[in-house]
């Protein structure tokens, strides 16, 4: 019995890797641009469908499909920020919420119009079923493990980019005080747009992993947004490592809830979030 619970916790931690990856981009846009993109989950699902079209529709190998989508996502993120979001930033809370909300509804319905309402999944071949035997009662899937390792690497990489590179220093400068940054000659719209491009890359990577690991349909976006939001808030705003911890916490809460009763999986994640948030509103590792 204890073995079964231990196994569920391990699976939950791995699931948390995927959730943390959903949350990474949201954490970045919340920390740098100080807004919550309500279309975040729908953009992830949009990537899932792009992977589906390339890999299943056109027969492009999966890795090549991802290699095509990632730079595209950077450009899309840059353009989205520059042409749309930048125009409504700094005008109070309402416009940016409404614009990203409208975007979310447009993406959901455009996907539904293009692909229909069916539930989809992208087959990934033998990696899907491959497992590693750890100890008795605990088997770890190669795909979930790959995703978890990728999530940790992504946090490391983003952390390095933000705190060890020139563009990272510029992004933080613009984020801390846009007008002071403008004063010393930093073009804040351009730098915000680059940050959103980086968010786009995290969306592309997490969407590609989601497409091969879980089922998705055109309305899957909001539930991904809620998970990502919960991971960001639980982890503490502005802390990427906190976001990873938040994602893992949600993954474990969900699998333990699912162990208790399959129907409780999603609800258990939300309840865990609400309880921890009530007790510790600043999150586990607040940076600010």
């Amino acid at each position: 019995m204890a073995g079964a619970w231990a196994n569920q916790i391990v699976q939950g931690v791995l699931l948390g890797g995927l959730y943390a990856m959903f949350a990474m981009g949201l954490s970045l846009s919340a920390g740098v641009m100080r807004f919550i993109n309500i279309a975040h989950g729908d953009l992830i699902v949009l990537v899932c469908f792009m992977v589906l079209s390339l890999a299943v529709g056109l027969g492009v190998p999966l890795l090549l499909a991802v290699a095509i989508i990632v730079p595209l996502a950077f450009v899309a993120g840059y353009v989205l920020q520059r042409l749309l979001l930048q125009r409504v930033l700094g005008q109070g809370v309402l416009p940016v919420i409404l614009v990203t909300f409208g975007l979310s509804i447009i993406i959901q319905n455009a996907l539904q119009g293009t692909y229909g309402a069916d539930t989809r999944k992208v087959p990934a071949g033998s990696i899907e079923t491959a497992t590693i035997h750890v100890v008795d009662g605990i088997n770890v899937g190669v795909l979930p493990l790959t995703i978890f390792v990728a999530a940790v690497l992504l946090v490391l990489l983003l952390d390095r980019v933000l705190y060890r590179t020139g563009i990272g220093a510029r992004i933080r400068a613009v984020s801390d005080d846009p007008s002071a940054a403008n004063l010393i000659g930093l073009p804040s719209p351009h730098i915000y747009a680059i940050a959103m491009g980086i968010v786009g890359i995290t969306i592309a990577i997490s969407g590609a992993f989601m497409a091969v690991w879980t089922n998705f349909d055109p309305t899957s976006g909001p539930s991904r947004l809620l998970i990502a939001f919960e991971a960001v808030v639980l982890g503490g705003l502005g802390s990427l490592w906190g976001t990873l911890a938040g994602g893992i916490l949600l993954g474990v809460a969900q699998t333990l809830g699912g162990q208790f009763d399959a129907a409780w999986q999603v609800l258990a994640g939300h309840i865990a979030f609400l309880v921890i948030f009530t007790l510790r509103p600043q999150g586990l590792f607040p940076r600010y």
Binding site: F35, V93, I97, F101, F229, V233, H270, I271, L274, F277
Partner: peptide
């Protein structure tokens, strides 16, 4: 209210959505 009023702006928006979903 006790839960979502701890959040502001976009956080409040999505936080209220989490509560509704729950």
């Amino acid at each position: 209210m006790a839960i979502i009023f701890r959040l502001r702006a976009g956080y409040l928006a999505v936080g209220s959505w989490v509560v509704a979903e729950t």
